[in-house]
Simulated scan of single mutants.
Amino acid sequence: MRLPFLQTQDPSLLWVEGHRIQAGAHQRPLSGLPTEDQLAQALAALPAGPTRWVVDDLWVPSVLLRDLPELPRGAEAQEAFFRWRFGQTLALEEPHAVQSILVESGTWLAAGIREDLRETWIQLSLRLDRGMRALTPRWLHLYNQLAPGFDLPGMLLSLSPAGGDRYAGTLVAWGRTLCLVRQWSEPLSPDGWNEERIAPSAAFLQREARTPQQMLVWGARTWPEGTVPVRCLDDRAPAGEVR
């Protein structure tokens, strides 16, 4: 099931990860959040008009909120409720702007970005006549590109390199639809990921009758085999189709 989360058909895509930024033919390395000058240079490489941003997972944390059969009435009340549940679930101290979408009955996907960071990016894009039409975490962009081919339960790793063959990032899994989202800012080696994060997640999914049949990996060229068969995705052209 594809999740139409902040989606748009606008082809002007800005791809921003902690280690690189790409817009059209413009690409340069980064070492963390981009400066306004770095963003301005990248946006200038795109056509004027609306832009779509795909950004590092760790800047837009995501969580599945379960057991929500009823919500407060009214759009403002629901927005406040999701913002509260999101901050409470992730123990966040800074205020976040939160977007949510229904995944299945009683379960919602919520993703948020620091309000100050979101406002800075929106204002910068507007000043350059490249207003932000959508802002999507990298894992969800990958999931939505791959989702039409999901016939069997599986897992996806969306990784951010941290140097020394270590990675932070996101693990998501699906059965009939998205059923697990877990994120770690602490980097681990691939063997550490397999032992401490992937194997326990696969065991949980097996108990839920959603045993993953394959694990797709974005952000690492190779990955050691573990409890789930592995296929590494080509991450050399982030603005193109995922293969």
Rank of each mutant, 00 (worst) to 15 (best):
Q88V: 02
T227Y: 08
V217F: 12
L14Y: 00
A237M: 07
S158P: 08
A199E: 12
E17F: 02
V63S: 10
R133P: 07
A173P: 02
P72E: 11
G131R: 05
A110E: 08
R138M: 15
L188W: 10
G154R: 06
A40W: 02
Q78K: 15
G226Y: 10
A134K: 08
L135P: 10
S125D: 00
R85Q: 13
V230G: 03
L39S: 05
G74T: 04
Q22E: 10
W108M: 11
L188D: 06
L6E: 15
R85T: 07
A23H: 09
V172H: 06
R197V: 01
V55N: 05
T170Q: 03
E225S: 15
R243S: 13
P224R: 00
S105M: 05
L65K: 04
W139P: 05
A111I: 08
L90K: 04
L117Q: 07
L39H: 01
L64S: 13
D67F: 00
T35A: 00
L43A: 06
R20N: 01
A220V: 06
P69T: 11
R138L: 12
P11W: 10
P47T: 02
L33R: 01
P200G: 08
G226P: 14
L233F: 09
T170C: 06
T89G: 06
C232I: 14
W15P: 00
G226F: 09
W121M: 07
M215P: 02
A91K: 08
A220M: 05
F5L: 11
A111E: 08
L140D: 07
V181I: 14
W53E: 00
V230C: 06
A147S: 10
L128A: 10
F150K: 01
R127Q: 03
E196G: 01
P200H: 10
M215W: 03
A147I: 13
L58R: 13
R73T: 01
G169Y: 01
R166P: 02
S158D: 04
Y167I: 15
E186M: 03
P50Y: 08
D10Y: 01
H19C: 02
E195T: 15
N194Q: 15
P187L: 06
L92N: 02
P29I: 03
P72A: 13
D37P: 00
E76G: 12
R207C: 14
H96P: 00
V16N: 06
D191K: 14
A80L: 08
E225R: 11
P137F: 02
P29N: 05
A91R: 07
D57S: 02
I122R: 03
R66K: 10
L30S: 02
Q22L: 05
P229C: 00
F5K: 03
E115M: 03
G131Y: 05
L135Y: 11
L92F: 02
V55F: 05
M1Q: 08
P47L: 01
E196M: 11
E115F: 04
A97M: 04
S201V: 09
T8S: 15
A162T: 05
R118L: 04
T8C: 09
V98L: 12
T222F: 13
R20W: 07
L205I: 12
R114A: 12
L117N: 06
G74W: 01
P72Y: 07
L157C: 00
E208R: 10
A239F: 03
A209T: 08
A134M: 11
P200F: 06
R243N: 15
